[in-house]
């Protein structure tokens, strides 16, 4: 077993503000830890080892196998899911920071409220105008295939927090994760609110802040392509308006 050095972001705005009267005194800093790294160790396990050394260190995690999307962090400058990212090959000391552009609650734990608000804004559920059938709404295998590459999103937030457009306008731009879900329902043959969905995306902000920077594609731990989905939305919008 080899020892690995990690430098993690530490910041406790609440406690620091309490112990020191001037809130401006509360400053983030990087703290270096050394942990034993068995072969195949994932970043999440290293963070757990750090927590064993210093229990005040905070980060989110849950399933440990890339399904729940809780442990998105910024590793050596790139967003990733800690639980499925091996650390053996990385440059040391490994720099672990919270997802960029989000307010820090404590250490690696960030406030994702705006991210979820943008997700909610695209109405990520089937909308039917016809009366609901007695049983299921049928869909052909070909139509079902159109949802591949869209439904797999676990909402970890790696993409949106890597997107400069989302950094500048997180209150107005939906961001790649929400727009991928917007296309997921636009592309669904069972959904009947295409026009309303497209109308809701008009204007310079919600959709059109995307400048195809493609950070989202680069960091998505599920290998999805929000930029392509955004392109499809623009195409459909064009098709419906000329």
């Amino acid at each position: 077993m080899t020892a690995i050095r990690l430098s993690v972001y530490r910041y406790q705005p609440d406690r620091d503000a309490e112990s020191r009267p001037a809130a401006s005194d509360a400053k983030p800093f990087m703290q270096t830890f050394e942990v034993e790294a068995p072969p195949g160790m994932m970043l999440r396990e290293a963070l757990l080892a750090i927590k064993a050394q210093d229990e005040t260190f905070a980060f989110r995690h849950s399933c440990g196998e890339g399904v729940c999307g809780s442990d998105g962090v910024n590793l050596n400058g790139t967003n990733c899911l800690a639980c499925i990212t091996p650390i053996a090959e990385l440059n040391q000391p490994i720099q672990v920071r919270p997802l960029p552009g989000r307010p820090v609650i404590r250490d690696l734990v960030v406030d994702m409220t705006q991210f979820y608000e943008q997700y909610r804004a695209v109405e990520p559920y089937l909308i039917r105008k016809d009366p609901l059938p007695e049983q299921e709404i049928r869909q052909s295998p070909e139509d079902r295939d159109k949802l591949d590459g869209l439904y797999e999103c676990i909402l970890c937030g790696c993409c949106s927090t890597a997107c400069p457009s989302f950094w500048w306008n997180p209150d107005k731009f939906h961001g790649p994760a929400a727009l991928l879900q917007s296309w997921r329902f636009l592309a669904d043959s069972r959904d009947q609110a295409t026009e309303e969905r497209l109308d809701a995306l008009e204007g310079p902000y919600k959709l059109f802040r995307c400048h195809s920077i493609m950070n989202c594609v680069e960091v998505c731990p599920k290998g999805l392509n929000p930029t392509r989905a955004i392109g499809k939305i623009k195409e459909l919008m064009l098709e419906q308006s000329v």
Partner: peptide, 9 residues
């Protein structure tokens, strides 16, 4: 305001 997204693009 409505046309400023798609049209500009």
């Amino acid at each position: 305001r409505r046309a400023s997204g798609l049209k500009a693009w």
